[in-house]
Design a protein around this nucleic acid. Sequence first.
DNA 1: AATGTATATCGCAAATATACGATAAGTTTT
DNA 2: AAAACTTATCGTATATTTGCGATATACATT
Lengths: 110, 110
Amino acid sequence: MAYTKKEEFGAREQALAAFAKALSHPARISILGILSKKEECICGEIVDDLPLAQSTVSQHLKELKEAGLILGETVGPRSCYCINWKAFERFYSEFSQLFHKLKEQQGRCC
Amino acid sequence: MAYTKKEEFGAREQALAAFAKALSHPARISILGILSKKEECICGEIVDDLPLAQSTVSQHLKELKEAGLILGETVGPRSCYCINWKAFERFYSEFSQLFHKLKEQQGRCC
DNA sequence: AATGTATATCGCAAATATACGATAAGTTTT
DNA sequence: AAAACTTATCGTATATTTGCGATATACATT
């Protein structure tokens, strides 16, 4: 039985949805906020700033990384994460397009 | 055991995450696209446009509605959905703020 | 009243996500 | 080479999401 039909939608829709999914948990929004504040994006501090276990934070970081929104770099025994600006900009632009497409429709119905 | 710690994050993070969650499935992105194209946002057509069963589409519509992104109105035997422009604009603005906060950090690390 | 049509909801199965502790893997420091 | 430290991964429990068919609900038409 065909469980999960995500592939049956357009590439654009899938990409935007994947991006949104990466942002769909408050922990991951928080992580991005933390990364934007720190001079050094060295993490571990992230763990201290969040009400989650280290392993859970690591998992959220992995998801953000797999979605392409952040980059990770190993520095000695630690990991340094930072925002993948390019990817973020691309998605923001896609999202803006969707938004403006919706805006055109404003007031035509209901 | 405390399963799901979403409530332990800030209201802003939770709201943004909830918004992103509503957009985190290609079917729901597609629905918004369809709504933006039709003169009349009368639905049922949505079911025909998507590779999903009627009940599944109805569920996605419900989620968008509960997230506040669309409004539903009963017109005779049918349902008419449309974009809740106000809510959408509010979330877009929040998201833009996050984006610009991230942008400030650009190039400071990694 | 009976039938047809459109949509929502219920109940269920499968898939995914969330969270944690334990442990592994990799680096320093001693 | 041991010990200490940081982070990733594994295993597991629970929660949530996704999807469907069946059924209920609500209006229209006959």
